[in-house]
């Protein structure tokens, strides 16, 4: 745990004022404005929570993807990747600590989106279930970091995997129902969507902002955490295998 916290603290210092963090903080309220303008123009003021939930989840996923891509690339560019791997500290714990720290910054976008909805459109959303919202955001940070960690090994093998990083944004938002609930997607897509943590996070966050009682909150949180943990387990297993391979071949530092 100490190693996890140290890695997270290091990453937060490293990240302060980074372009990725700035980008997410600037784009989240703009996305809220875009989504709210569409629903407001159509006279659907009841859908305001959608416009706050979607930018939040988009920011979290974007930052997780960014962390998965940049973590290895940056270490390689700085010439510190070999040192990181040779150190006795568990690499998996360091990677997850750093990825969670990056992703956690996305939580700021929730506050920004909420403020944008209030300041620009006068929609000050209430928090009828604050505990559910906070717990869901924290679970989503873990799930986003865990799922994106699957990509980290790819960046060790092929730096050109950046194309994949760029590609996994909107298809994932669509599949995860971050803006439009999964129930509006074609029937054959829905089972696939349910395997994506974003669909559970989006539904629970929207319910958390709705005055109606939230059903099965604990079970739904458990699903988000389980999906994130499964992603983390797969990601770390792949990372170990890939690192063993590049160490055997002596190609670790090759970009």
């Amino acid at each position: 745990m100490r190693l996890f916290v140290t890695a997270a603290r290091f990453q937060l210092r490293h990240l302060a004022g980074s372009p990725a963090a700035v980008q997410v903080c600037v784009t989240a309220p703009l996305l809220t404005v875009v989504f709210l303008s569409i629903s407001d123009y159509a006279g659907r003021t009841d859908l305001s929570p959608y416009a706050v939930v979607a930018p939040t989840l988009m920011s979290l996923w974007l930052l997780a993807l960014h962390a998965a891509g940049e973590l290895i690339t940056e270490e390689r560019d700085l010439g510190t990747l070999e040192g990181l791997i040779a150190a006795p500290a568990r690499l998996g714990t360091v990677v997850m600590g750093r990825m969670c720290a990056v992703t956690a910054i996305g939580v700021v976008s929730f506050a920004e989106s909420w403020l944008a909805a209030g300041l620009v459109f006068g929609r000050w959303l209430a928090f009828p279930h604050p505990l559910v919202v906070v717990a869901c955001l924290l679970a989503t940070v873990w799930a986003a970091a865990g799922t994106a960690s699957i990509l980290s090994p790819l960046f060790v093998l092929m730096p050109s995997a950046r194309v994949i990083q760029n590609t996994l944004s909107y298809p994932f938002y669509l599949l995860g129902g971050v803006l439009v609930p999964v129930t509006f997607l074609p029937g054959w897509v829905q089972p696939v969507s349910r395997a994506v943590f974003l669909s559970w996070s989006a539904d629970l966050l929207r319910d958390g902002l709705d005055p109606a009682p939230v059903t099965d909150a604990v079970a739904r949180l458990a699903v988000i955490l389980a999906l994130g943990s499964a992603g983390c387990a797969i990601g770390l297993m792949l990372l170990r295998r890939v690192l063993n391979r590049v160490r055997r071949l002596g190609t670790l530092a090759q970009a």
């Binding site: 569409i38 629903s39 159509a42 659907r44 859908l47 669509l174």
Partner: peptide, 11 residues
């Protein structure tokens, strides 16, 4: 598709 689906749902 992401934006169009929102339009479909709301309007």
């Amino acid at each position: 598709t992401f934006f169009v689906l929102l339009g479909r749902v709301v309007a």
